[in-house]
Amino acid sequence: MDRDSAFKWVGVGLRHPHLDYFQQHSNAASWLEIHSENYFIETSSTRQQLRAIRQNTDISCHGIGLSLGSVTTVNKQHLTSLVNLVNEIQPTMVSDHLSWSEYGGHHFNDLLPLPYTEEALDVFCRNVLQVQDALQRPLLIENPSSYLRFEHSTIPEWEFLTQVQTRTDCRLLLDLNNVHVSCFNHQYDSQQYLSAIKASTVDEIHLAGFTKKQLDQGEIWIDTHSDHVSDEVWQLYRSWVARHGPTPTLIEWDLDIPEPKVLLEEADKAIDILQDSALIPKRSA
């Protein structure tokens, strides 16, 4: 695969400090991914800049607020705002998380884990179907990073995610950093996790950095998106590409945000791996 072809597969997260840069440098990245909720206000200056950027660059919408794991149905106002944004911007992909963050009108500033049970699976699938019906397109569901698990969970996370995809015909967003972090925290096998994911259902990959923290109980890894992608996650990515071929790939960096040059250098690493693979896309596995 030549560099121009590889370049088209790799995007970077568009964060507020970089809006001016990517508006002025439309060829710096092949595509950009936004946090949808940051652009819900139609009259805001950020929405206006997004409109300008979208004229020259593909956009993907990544949500953090649908709270698909909540027992209550998806918040109608939130969903209406998302539909309006999607209809205007026409993103290449729309995604959210295997998590919940709202209950009874109370919103939590985190993506909280689910108990992996049949009951939770029914709820989650119901909410995904509600969103897809409103959007009139498939939603991508991202595997979470997690730091605790419920004792009464009966379904491994990778199987839960796969069943969500099968029941709803949604697509998957495979975050390799989250796989790496969660597998360490819960002593899972990352290869077992990835082997259970059907590659043909994965429409996007996320790569990011994480932080190691020492607690009295031992070491924990936290998905902070505040550093370079780790060597181990790059290896997971290289292995995925070698086995399944290219998948649209995003570099995420949400805290301690560096200059665009640093972000684009991380994207170049992904591009180099795709070049090295020299593979025709094959995602039937």
Rank of each mutant, 00 (worst) to 15 (best):
P91K: 05
S146A: 15
E159F: 08
V181G: 04
K213E: 14
S26Y: 11
I89T: 02
W31P: 03
H106F: 15
T154V: 13
N185A: 08
T249A: 10
L255C: 10
F7D: 02
K212R: 12
P17C: 09
A285K: 13
L172S: 05
R51S: 13
L148M: 15
Q132I: 07
L263W: 01
M1W: 11
G63Q: 10
S284K: 14
D268K: 02
S230K: 07
P258W: 07
F40N: 09
V71M: 11
H97G: 14
D216V: 10
P156Y: 14
L161H: 04
I251R: 09
T154N: 08
R51C: 03
T211C: 06
E159Q: 15
Y237T: 03
G63I: 13
I280N: 15
D169T: 09
D216A: 15
R15C: 00
I197T: 07
G65T: 13
L129K: 12
E266M: 12
K213C: 08
S81M: 07
A285Y: 14
D223Y: 04
L207Q: 10
L79C: 05
L176K: 03
A52K: 11
I220N: 06
W221I: 06
L14Q: 14
S195A: 15
E142V: 05
T249F: 12
D189A: 01
S182N: 11
T154S: 15
I273N: 01
L172C: 03
S226P: 03
T72H: 15
S239W: 11
I257P: 04
R15Y: 03
H106P: 01
R3K: 14
W9H: 11
G69M: 06
E252I: 05
T57E: 01
R149Q: 10
L161R: 01
L161N: 03
Q24D: 10
N143H: 12
L139G: 15
F150K: 01
H206T: 04
L255I: 12
K282A: 15
P258T: 04
H186G: 08
R283K: 09
N56Q: 07
I205D: 01
N185K: 03
W100K: 13
L274V: 06
E142T: 09
I251L: 13
E259V: 03
E157V: 08
R171D: 09
P260Q: 02
H244S: 09
V86D: 00
G65L: 12
Q187T: 14
L85E: 03
I271Y: 00
H206A: 08
W158G: 01
D175H: 08
V74R: 08
T117C: 11
N178D: 12
L194T: 00
Q191S: 00
S145T: 06
W221A: 01
V123N: 10
V86K: 04
Y103H: 12
W158Q: 14
V181M: 03
N38Q: 07
Q23L: 05
H180C: 02
F160H: 09
Q49A: 15
P156F: 13
I280A: 13
V10A: 02
E42W: 05
I273D: 00
F160M: 10
S30F: 02
A267V: 00
A196K: 07
R283T: 00
V71F: 13
I280F: 12
L129S: 13
E265P: 01
N143P: 02
N56R: 04
S95G: 14
P246S: 12
K8N: 13
I271P: 02
Y147K: 06
H228M: 11
S5V: 13
